[in-house]
Amino acid sequence: MKTLELALAKHPFFYNFPEEYLRSIAGQAQIVEYKEGDILFNEGSDARKFYLIVKGKVALETYAPGKGAIVLQTVEDGEMLGWSWLVAPYKYRFGARVSHKTEMIVINGEELRRQCENDPRLGYELMKRMVHAITFRLEQTRLLVMDVYANRANKK
């Protein structure tokens, strides 16, 4: 396997992914190092890329008037980032800023979407992993909403 294929195969998102697909996805991917403060994308911008974090930390942000950037969560080693390239209208819902030096596999999302349309087997395999990752994220969000560490005595 070539370096990129190997990097994809080692990433938890692509664990045990059929090899022939890894080869074609590797053709649309590159390994990129980002430095602290780099903006990967802004809220509302066109979603063209799919990011897999190899090592590092990226903050997902939104903005509130008077408050500035609010970090919703960080995405870290072995996690994926940005699924808006797969979901119409293909716009990023949040901004993403690199908070520590981060090594990432950056995949051309538009191309990958096209490949999925043409090959439903690839599309389904990828979708299963996406749903798994999104479910995990949703579960975490629900836990956050529950605010489990709140001091109940302070609540009216």
Binding site: P12, K57, A69, V71, Q73, T74, E76, S99, L144
Partner: peptide, 20 residues
């Protein structure tokens, strides 16, 4: 669970660290 401006560490629930 909730960061602040000055916080440079992780934001998210503790369980998400377990797969890593």
């Amino acid at each position: 669970d909730r960061g602040t401006k000055a916080w440079r560490g992780s934001v998210g629930v503790v369980t998400r660290l377990i797969p890593q």
